[in-house]
Amino acid sequence: MAVDITLSVNGVPYPLTVDPHASLLHTVRGDVGLTGSKEGCDDSECGACMMLVDGRPVNSCSYLAVQADGSDVTTVEGLSDGETLAPLQEAFLTRGGVQCGFCTPGMLVSATALLDRSPDPSEDEIRTAVSGNLCRCTGYDGIVKAIAAVAAERAAQG
């Protein structure tokens, strides 16, 4: 029996009717129409589907859309200010944190969650935070440096 829910995605409320077993990922990609979040493994190993739900990092492939009813969902599309990229996005570009780009939306969301809870993370904390996000291109080094650079910039700005 389909269930009526409202998802607030990147600040925009979407009234939706979903199957109780529909994943948050499929609902956001298919019903809301935001395809930045990716489906990789579909079982919480790769992190390509990472979203924030009320600020918490969530593997949206393995989270039911019905459970996010009334929640604030943030996807990679919600990180930038219109066409102006977020500092993390700029840093990923300039530091070689992007190659094929498939993992990038999930990486950026995990990095956002990390800096929200730990503004000045050690390299160890950064590597721990993105360990649930698999990247088969970059070797992670550019990604880790990009996140560290944004944290350092923020610290310098006070």
Binding site: S44, G47, R56, V58
Partner: peptide, 9 residues
């Protein structure tokens, strides 16, 4: 336990 997403949920 798991990753930071697993621990958060």
């Amino acid at each position: 336990v798991g990753s930071h997403a697993t621990r958060a949920n």
